[in-house]
């Protein structure tokens, strides 16, 4: 595990929890702000041991930029796939061709694999059934070919190249 020190991990958790708290209580009063910061600091004392693997280095501008670019891309993919599945559901003949295919990823870190698996599942029409090492087992509602290369190109490829900008 590429771990950073305890303080840096605690600080990362503290910042994230505080930002969440600020977003939730948006027109906040000063008393609410202090309470939120104190509770955030307290909670991240306990979670720092298990989460926030990379500490403050996660705030590097290139990583944040990568994440900000990724959000509109995945939203666009979700909208496209939603319309595709809506057409399948509405057509009288129900033109589905389901299969469970395998696809290998180049991502190394756990957090990267998690992002990719969640992205695949969020897109309607594809669903991650299991991950064993670097192999994804993906259930597709409609797929033309079942060989691995086609699966990598059509399902994983469009997310992976953007994910590699901010996770390993």
């Amino acid at each position: 595990m590429n771990s950073s020190n305890y303080f840096s991990r605690w600080f990362f958790g503290f910042i994230v929890l505080s930002l969440l708290w600020l977003a939730f209580t948006f027109p906040f009063s000063l008393a609410e702000l202090y309470t939120g910061l104190a509770i955030g600091a307290f909670i991240s004392l306990f979670t720092a041991k298990y989460f926030e693997e990379f500490g403050i280095s996660s705030f590097a501008p290139s990583k944040i930029l990568g994440l900000l670019i990724y959000i509109p891309i995945i939203l666009w993919e979700i909208i496209k796939a939603n319309i595709e599945v809506a057409i399948i559901v509405l057509s009288p003949s129900l033109p589905i061709k389901p299969a469970i295919v395998t696809a290998k990823t180049k991502l190394k870190s756990d957090i990267g694999k998690m992002f990719l698996a969640n992205s695949i599942t969020l897109t309607p029409g594809t669903l991650t059934v299991d991950i064993i090492d670097d192999t994804y087992f993906i259930h597709c509602i409609k797929i033309d070919k079942t060989d691995e290369k086609y699966a990598i190109d059509s399902i994983i490829g469009k997310f992976e190249k953007h994910l590699r900008r901010f996770v390993k």
Partner: peptide
């Protein structure tokens, strides 16, 4: 499995 596929649509969009 296909039912799960369509229910992800309800949760996402």
């Amino acid at each position: 499995y296909n039912r799960l596929q369509t229910s992800t649509k309800a949760t996402t969009l």
